[in-house]
Amino acid sequence: MKLMICIADDFYADEIENRTKRLGYRMTKLSSSGSFLRKGSTTFLFGIPEKEVDVLTESLKSICLDYEKKKGKKEERTHRFISFLIDAKNASGLPVL
Score class of each variant (00 low, 15 high):
residue 1 M to F: 09
residue 4 M to D: 00
residue 6 C to P: 02
residue 6 C to T: 11
residue 7 I to M: 06
residue 7 I to K: 04
residue 8 A to F: 02
residue 9 D to Q: 03
residue 10 D to Y: 12
residue 10 D to M: 09
residue 10 D to G: 08
residue 10 D to C: 09
residue 11 F to K: 02
residue 12 Y to V: 01
residue 13 A to E: 00
residue 14 D to S: 11
residue 14 D to K: 07
residue 15 E to G: 00
residue 17 E to G: 06
residue 17 E to F: 05
residue 18 N to E: 15
residue 19 R to N: 11
residue 20 T to H: 02
residue 20 T to D: 01
residue 20 T to I: 07
residue 20 T to F: 01
residue 21 K to R: 08
residue 21 K to N: 10
residue 22 R to M: 09
residue 25 Y to Q: 04
residue 25 Y to R: 02
residue 25 Y to W: 00
residue 26 R to W: 12
residue 26 R to E: 12
residue 26 R to L: 12
residue 30 L to N: 12
residue 31 S to D: 12
residue 31 S to L: 11
residue 33 S to V: 11
residue 34 G to L: 02
residue 34 G to V: 06
residue 34 G to E: 03
residue 36 F to L: 13
residue 38 R to A: 10
residue 39 K to T: 14
residue 39 K to R: 12
residue 39 K to C: 15
residue 40 G to N: 11
residue 41 S to F: 03
residue 41 S to V: 09
residue 41 S to Q: 13
residue 42 T to F: 08
residue 44 F to I: 01
residue 44 F to P: 02
residue 45 L to T: 08
residue 46 F to D: 03
residue 47 G to K: 05
residue 48 I to N: 01
residue 48 I to W: 00
residue 49 P to T: 05
residue 49 P to Q: 04
residue 50 E to I: 05
residue 50 E to H: 05
residue 50 E to M: 05
residue 51 K to L: 03
residue 51 K to D: 02
residue 53 V to L: 10
residue 55 V to L: 14
residue 55 V to N: 14
residue 55 V to F: 06
residue 55 V to Y: 14
residue 55 V to C: 11
residue 56 L to A: 03
residue 56 L to G: 01
residue 57 T to W: 02
residue 58 E to W: 01
residue 58 E to H: 06
residue 58 E to T: 04
residue 59 S to M: 05
residue 59 S to N: 07
residue 61 K to V: 08
residue 62 S to E: 15
residue 66 D to V: 09
residue 67 Y to K: 03
residue 67 Y to D: 00
residue 67 Y to F: 15
residue 68 E to I: 04
residue 69 K to Q: 14
residue 70 K to S: 13
residue 71 K to E: 03
residue 72 G to P: 00
residue 74 K to G: 02
residue 74 K to D: 00
residue 75 E to Q: 06
residue 76 E to I: 08
residue 76 E to S: 12
residue 77 R to L: 15
residue 77 R to I: 04
residue 77 R to K: 10
residue 78 T to E: 15
residue 78 T to R: 12
residue 79 H to M: 12
residue 80 R to A: 08
residue 80 R to C: 14
residue 80 R to I: 00
residue 83 S to K: 04
residue 83 S to N: 10
residue 84 F to K: 02
residue 85 L to S: 06
residue 85 L to C: 06
residue 85 L to Y: 07
residue 86 I to Q: 07
residue 87 D to V: 05
residue 87 D to L: 07
residue 89 K to M: 10
residue 89 K to H: 13
residue 89 K to L: 12
residue 90 N to W: 10
residue 90 N to Q: 10
residue 90 N to S: 11
residue 90 N to H: 13
residue 91 A to M: 04
residue 91 A to S: 11
residue 92 S to G: 14
residue 93 G to D: 09
residue 93 G to L: 08
residue 94 L to D: 14
residue 95 P to E: 11
residue 97 L to Y: 13
